[in-house]
């Protein structure tokens, strides 16, 4: 995105305002990334990361925080976050001279285009079974839906971004629009669950800030 016409000013803007960045990079090799994101995306990502590094982002001890977000390129789980971070740091440094602070891993949610892929490739049932079979109760207290709500551009409230994507608003007994915001009611609400919720509770768990454990 940082390389798109009309957006070239963004890196400098981010630096000036000390914006913490999280950049999506599924893997440290071109073929894996381009397979998921489209031809040439990996090279563009490298260019953007190099530009951010040049501005001081990602350097050890730098206030300009540059974190990466990796998700698997298919119907399997991400490696343990700490181990993948070591691999990414070694390989991105060795191959391309790229530096970053932290790596977050994300489990692919069985919704939207990924769900279509799972069904088309006959992976859906096995992937869902794997998610459900890997349910880890220790992830539950840290789940994002326990601490946040998701607000759509029209002001409609959801338990999480995934429920928003699936058009599953909060239950009828709760405030359903930002104009009716009621902290007490929302803090102790019943969360609307569906099959995809297993995506956040599997293994080490998953959130926008990476795995929930370790």
């Amino acid at each position: 995105m940082l390389l798109e016409p009309g957006k070239e000013h963004l890196p400098e803007f981010f630096r000036r305002h000390r914006v913490e960045l999280v950049c999506s990079l599924p893997y440290y090799q071109a073929d894996m990334v381009d397979r998921l994101r489209g031809a040439g995306v990996f090279q563009k990502s490298l260019e953007a990361l190099r530009r951010l590094n040049e501005l001081g982002y990602g350097r050890e001890g730098s206030e300009l925080v540059l974190n990466l977000m990796a998700n698997p390129v298919g119907a399997y789980f991400p490696p343990p976050q700490a181990e993948l971070e070591i691999l990414f740091r070694r390989e991105l440094g060795r191959r391309y001279g790229i530096r970053f602070h932290q790596l977050f891993t994300l489990i692919n949610m069985p919704i939207g285009r990924f769900e279509e892929f799972l069904r088309r490739s006959n992976n859906y049932e096995r992937y869902l079974n794997r998610l459900a079979g890997s349910f880890n109760p220790a992830t539950v207290p840290s789940l994002m839906c326990r601490h946040l709500i998701s607000v759509s551009w029209e002001g409609i409230l959801y338990d999480c971004d995934f429920n928003q994507a699936l058009n599953l608003p909060l239950g009828e007994e709760l405030p359903r629009h930002i104009r009716d915001f009621d902290l007490k009611a929302l803090q102790h609400r019943r969360i609307r669950l569906a099959e995809h919720c297993y995506g956040c509770t599997a293994g080490s768990g998953s959130s926008c800030a990476g795995s929930l454990e370790g």
Partner: peptide
């Protein structure tokens, strides 16, 4: 194959 991918190895 799955275990390798899930532990961070790549097809190469």
């Amino acid at each position: 194959t799955r275990a390798c991918l899930e532990s961070g190895s790549n097809p190469e």
